[in-house]
């Protein structure tokens, strides 16, 4: 999977928008959305929200975790925990990036939020790399990677699987000689 494909999947997540136009229910493949009435919040997929926002036909209510307080807490948790902390959404990086790029006026303190998101994802990436090294060097048989987001998995997938494959081949050849005696 590619980063673009993961972003595409993230765009299916639902967000709440406050429209400024009237429209009946619209029927899409993924379901019915609406009806749209001015100042009446309704949930739509992220891609639709961004599209409406670009036409200045709605305000996006950012998800409840997309603010400085919640993210500071998550960052703290992530730093203190040895394992990966559960994130509010499996696509938190992508959703935050999309919203910050397209609807930064709907988010309070967008710059701080952007910095926090970057901090969290950096902390998690460092943890992931350290975990891989421990796993390979110390011959652990499994690694606990709960709460890893698809984005993070993608960043190490090809390298990690291939390396472990080759290592396995080396080890199985070596074991053959250990057992033949």
């Amino acid at each position: 999977m590619d980063f673009n494909e993961i972003e595409f999947l993230a765009e299916k997540e639902l967000v709440t928008v406050v429209p400024n136009f009237s429209e009946d229910k619209i029927t899409l493949v993924t379901g019915d959305y609406g009806p749209f009435n001015p100042s009446m919040p309704t949930t739509v997929p992220l891609w639709l929200a961004v599209s409406l926002k670009k036409q200045q036909r709605c305000h996006i209510q950012p998800p409840e975790w997309l603010n400085v307080d919640m993210l500071t807490q998550k960052k703290q948790d992530e730093k203190e925990s040895e394992l990966f902390v559960e994130m509010p959404s499996n696509h938190f990086i992508e959703i935050a990036t999309i919203l910050l790029d397209n609807a930064s006026d709907d988010i309070t303190q967008p710059d701080e939020v952007r910095a926090l998101i970057k901090d969290i994802s950096d902390a998690r990436a460092a943890k992931l790399k350290k975990g891989i090294v421990d796993m390979v060097v110390e011959r652990a048989t499994h690694g606990k990677v709960d709460n890893l987001t698809p984005m993070e998995v993608t960043s190490v997938r090809s390298f990690l699987t291939q390396s472990l494959d080759q290592l396995h081949i080396l080890r199985s050849h070596a074991n053959q000689h250990a057992t033949q005696t």
């Binding site: 390298f159 290592l167 080396l170 000689h177 005696t181």
Partner: peptide, 28 residues
């Protein structure tokens, strides 16, 4: 013969594992 092979196999694995760490760090 077996002893020699075991030692060679061990060297190969050790070398790969210890170098892999540097390769991973630099490639990322």
């Amino acid at each position: 013969d077996e002893e020699e092979k075991e030692r060679l196999a061990k060297t190969l694995i050790e070398t790969f594992v210890r170098r892999l760490r540097v390769i991973m760090d630099s490639s990322h």
